[in-house]
Design a protein around this nucleic acid. Structure first.
Lengths: 221, 221
DNA sequence: AATCCTGTTTGACCTCGATCAAGCTTGCTG
DNA sequence: CAGCAAGCTTGATCGAGGTCAAACAGGATT
């Protein structure tokens, strides 16, 4: 198997903290894979064999309940990794991963990464940092689910994607509203309505382009 | 400072995976502390100096939003640890921790644990396993927040605390309904109503004692 | 036993957002 | 360019659960 160009991997959060030696050691075990829209990368509950770095495109991580209804746990962007928490234990995937468009990932064999992490403190440290970051994100997510309204979540998202000192801003949403809704724990309808409400606060939405007229005003919503 | 009896700490999830040497090494740095009901152990946003193992009692981990409204992220039981994800990075506490009654914790200096974890693969591995466990729990939590009703969350909680093969069961809630409501992301009123509804499914609640008449029936709710 | 105080339950109300069902854009493809 | 299929918006409806207020336990303390 041909090792992946480390320059490709270098942009990922898993690799960005690694020194050259560890990075190349880990890259040895990587395998590039491509997926098309809606293709399933991993399936919740299945035997876990791999961990992934997302290099291009977006991936939704979903969990389903008994009745088959499913929701998004996290939306992965380029540079994110997923399933990496299995390095610390667990034998099955805790969520499904679906490609949301054309996707390129680097796949790593779980057992091999485990062995590497056990030997290489640099790698285990990087994995730990990833997990800590995800922990913080998930806690934020629960907090916003439980105490913010749809409107607040959307404004928070917008504000977190522009420079607060500026007066106005133009944001290009990185993915379809569909995905954004999932990320924020909303239905597409609810997201749409939130945007509609924000119109009166000077927010103009044109496809994936969002123009915020008055950032300060938005902060007071 | 007198090292804590390792027998005390041994029951905690952080220590249960450690070999004797690592356990004693870490215990050296521990300090026992006691808190009374409602006392604040750590404060969200404050400079992080310590990580904790909960040895006795219960602790609620809360996050607040801008308006000061707060919710429980996680309820810690004896043996749980909290703030441990700071070992991987971050300089402020991501949540507040309040004692929910009489509480005994072991406090460890963050910088010292970081240094130890850096040297001792056993310790960093244990921390990693803790974090992975919390990750899974939080993902479950988000999933149940987003796709289960109050009734389903309560039944799931009950079912996860009894042996499913049995016909009936008696559960002693480990803490006040107050806390249970927070853990499940409900108001006390909503929890109370869920219990009221379950009465018709053969669930009798008397204070903290819950008798389930027909477990199989409950699973079909 | 009388009193607090805190936790729980119940009731009434009302808001938010999910759901279902159309219309309406877009972009893609023949 | 027509036509189709996604995605997105908008409207109407409805139910779950939050909020506020009041009644109701227990336990602990005098």
């Amino acid at each position: 198997m041909m090792p992946i160009e480390t320059s490709l991997l270098a942009r990922s959060k898993l690799f960005e903290g690694l020194d050259r030696v560890s990075a190349e050691r880990l890259a040895e075990y990587g395998e590039l894979m491509w997926f098309g829209p809606r293709e399933i990368i991993i399936r919740e509950g299945a035997e876990a064999t791999s961990i992934f770095c997302l290099l291009q495109g977006y991936v939704r991580l979903c969990k389903a309940n008994a009745d088959g209804r499913a929701i998004d746990i996290r939306i992965c962007e380029p540079g994110d990794s997923f399933a990496e928490c299995l390095v610390a234990g667990g034998s099955t995937y805790a969520y499904s991963a679906h490609a949301a468009g054309a996707v390129m990932v680097a796949r790593f064999d779980l057992a091999e990464v485990k062995a590497l992490a056990h030997m290489d403190r640099d790698i285990s440290g990087a994995l730990m940092r990833l997990m800590a970051g995800h922990l913080l994100d998930l806690m934020e997510c629960i907090a916003s689910d439980r105490l913010d309204t749809a409107l607040q979540r959307v404004t928070n998202y917008l504000l977190s994607h522009c420079m607060l000192e500026q007066q106005h801003a133009t944001i290009h949403l990185p993915f379809q509203k569909n995905l954004l809704a999932g990320k924020l724990g909303l239905t597409p309808e609810a997201l749409s309505r939130a945007f509609a409400t924000l119109k009166s606060a000077g927010v103009a939405v044109q496809g994936r382009i969002v123009r915020i007229g008055d950032i300060a005003a938005l902060r007071r919503v």
